[in-house]
């Protein structure tokens, strides 16, 4: 669906069901240079099972208007604005990679609005490889090729997509190339590189938090994810085998199962 946030048109997938303000809201925040489509194998489940879902395209990404936001802090404020714009007082947040930094900062800034955090392939800081950052900022498609290489685990490089007929690396690459690379990936990578508040924010988080980590993740390795999770009071950790950073697609069912268990426990649908 399309709606306005601060006068700019925003697109969000509602998971194939109409957006219903009576249902609890889960917001999904994508990673650097990507779009709402990375969440397709998680969002539809929740949309069909009693939740209202918004898998956002961040400003300047995918089908959303505007320009990419330049800092993680601005993105965190924007998520809060999204919650206001759709008429909610609270939401559960799910983030992937850069999206984890965004929702962490959002929960730090707006603790009353955020009910749970689910961090997929998250870390307290995501310093960028200088060569990768430079390629992305210079609009070089090789940045996307490298990201797709590093973001997929050994198995994902062969394929075996859960949706019959789809090929991981080319699909992910096409998502990241859907808009101008320097204006999406370049800006996002710089925002990740500049963000320094993750560990401080983590210590202040008092809401149920789940960290889902992949044992083949080269971009946000398990040890970095654990370092962050250890700082969050009561945080839960799930480690997914046989995949890399793109766990949402590489092992979509396993990710959905742990997310489902967590959300249904800590952000249940209120029965009348």
């Amino acid at each position: 669906m399309k709606f306005q946030v601060n006068g700019v048109e925003v697109f969000a997938s509602t998971g194939g069901r109409p957006f219903d303000k009576k249902k609890p809201l889960i917001i999904f925040v994508h990673g650097s240079g990507l779009t709402h489509m990375t969440w397709v194998l998680q969002t539809r489940y929740f949309a069909f099972h009693g939740y209202s879902v918004l898998a956002l395209d961040m400003p300047g990404h995918g089908l959303s208007g505007g320009e990419s936001l330049k800092t993680i802090e601005d993105m965190a404020d924007w998520i809060s604005d999204v919650i206001d714009a759709v008429g909610y007082k609270e939401a559960s947040l799910v983030g992937h990679s850069q999206g984890c930094l965004v929702i962490l900062e959002c929960a730090f800034r707006f603790p009353k609005k955020i009910k749970t955090l689910s961090l997929m392939g998250g870390a307290g800081a995501i310093p960028m490889n200088p060569e990768l950052l430079s390629l992305a900022e210079n609009d070089d498609p090789k940045a996307v090729d490298l990201m797709m290489d590093w973001a997929h685990g050994p198995a994902g490089h062969f394929g075996g997509h859960p949706v019959p007929g789809l090929y991981h690396i080319n699909t992910g690459g096409m998502l990241a190339k859907s808009r101008t690379i320097k204006n999406t990936l370049g800006i996002d990578f710089r925002a990740c590189d500049n963000y320094k508040n993750g560990f401080k924010a983590a210590k202040e988080i008092k809401i149920p938090t789940l960290s889902v980590l992949a044992n083949g993740d080269k971009m946000c390795p398990v040890k970095e994810g654990k370092k962050l999770a250890d700082l969050i009071d009561g945080s839960k950790i799930e480690i997914i085998d046989n995949c890399g950073h793109m766990m949402l697609l590489e092992e979509a069912d396993k990710v959905l199962n742990v997310l489902k268990k967590f959300i249904l426990t800590y952000f249940p649908i209120k029965k009348n």
Binding site: H161, G165, Y167
Partner: peptide, 13 residues
């Protein structure tokens, strides 16, 4: 399907 998509540089087949 995946193999041909991979060889063609396509997203899906």
């Amino acid at each position: 399907e995946e193999r041909v998509a991979a060889l063609e540089g396509g997203t899906a087949a």
